[in-house]
Design a protein around this nucleic acid. Structure first.
Lengths: 215, 215
DNA sequence: CAACACCAAACAATCGTTTGTTTCGATTTG
DNA sequence: CAAATCGAAACAAACGATTGTTTGGTGTTG
């Protein structure tokens, strides 16, 4: 209904905008969550990511999320002051996870095309993973006013691809910005047609890149 | 909230599922709407297309649409039995409009690449037009269960691109299905970053195709 | 007159959110 | 060591607003 950047319906004390202590940064995530993950807050983020990613922001209610975490709706507000704040936290988590995955994937490669391919595979695997944390990255096609924080997070993430593409030996006359946006678009769009059991995300990405790449 | 393919909240008489008499097919749309357009139904579709396209299905309420048409919410149900039916009508209209635009664009061209370029430009212009009827075509990233009719319409539209791509003289080893989905994805995604006043849709599309096309 | 297009008003359901209370483990204190 | 205290986390219940939709009446028009 209303754009995300707007004020909440019932007046909430704006002063209570507590700036979290930089988030309890857990060590770059060895696997998934081996540690007891007593952090219930993180459970909320995980479930919300799954729901936002599969049903969209407007299509996911706080009650849906609460039910998935098995707490009552009101209890969510112990962890997050509003639905929008929760979304921002989810988005930030998804960005950091994807960033970690992409960074790890390109770490030990030097060839520019190999680095781009590794990054794209990691990115797309995150998007298409059925227990996806990353689908939320593209869950807001139509939300016109999305929070500044989210835009900033997205830009910081996409800048990684900007740098990877800057290293490519492309023929002159190629617009690298359009190259980046086109590539990201074709990867994002896979979520609308990808079916598990068919081609793997890695195969899809390799085929996409083989179309773009010139010998 | 609930997937579009499901039953409505308050029990509606399912028998009244009136299959419209094939829709009052207006002559392939000379320009936009020069004729008096007494058809109020079409006004509803136009406004709904604009709103669905810019705010998404869940983000658009029947009251929003009614206000845009300047009638009361309940009056919408004189034209459409449900919100979902309205969406299907809007989607069908958008497909037919886009189909007309693409068909006209490729009519007098023979070179395969020129035909594809013309089609892509027409497609993307429809998507990015600020008074867009076509943005609704991609307004459902996350809706898991979308009506069968919509899927069928989308497939019929995309089959045009399938044929255009089949004609291309591509190097062997290129997966033309991935080619099509990647190209459609990169075009669809422009809606997330396109800004009026910057590069025109035509320029964007030409740059995209110049990346893909090999000399 | 009959069909159409609409208004006016309401319906139950669900929305995001608030409020007040309870539970319970850890910490502090007598 | 035991009792008192505390805060986090949850429950229980409700708030007003908004959702899609229904019903019944009204004016207009061919």
């Amino acid at each position: 209904m209303k754009p995300m950047g707007s004020k909440s319906r019932t007046a909430r004390p704006m002063a209570k905008r507590k700036t979290r202590p930089a988030k309890p940064v857990r060590p770059p995530a060895a696997k998934k969550q081996i540690e007891p993950l007593d952090d219930r807050r993180q459970v909320v983020i995980n479930e919300a990511a799954r729901l936002f990613g599969s049903k969209g922001y407007e299509g996911t209610s706080m009650r849906d999320i609460a039910a998935a975490v098995k707490i009552l709706p009101g209890s969510l507000y112990h962890h997050f002051p509003s639905k929008e704040d929760l979304f921002v936290a989810v988005y930030a988590f998804a960005v950091s996870q994807s960033l970690d995955a992409v960074t790890a994937a390109i770490a030990n490669r030097t060839d520019p095309w190999a680095r781009l391919e590794a990054a794209c595979i990691a990115h797309t695997q995150g998007l298409l993973d059925t227990n996806s944390y990353a689908a939320v990255l593209i869950s807001h096609l139509s939300v016109s006013n999305l929070p500044n924080q989210v835009v900033a997070l997205r830009d910081s993430y996409e800048s990684v691809f900007k740098e990877l593409i800057a290293e490519l030996p492309l023929p002159p006359g190629i617009d690298r910005r359009i190259f980046r946006l086109g590539l990201l678009g074709s990867m994002s769009w896979t979520i609308t047609w990808y079916r598990p059991g068919g081609e793997t995300p890695a195969t899809i990405v390799r085929k996409l890149l083989s179309i773009i790449r010139r010998e």
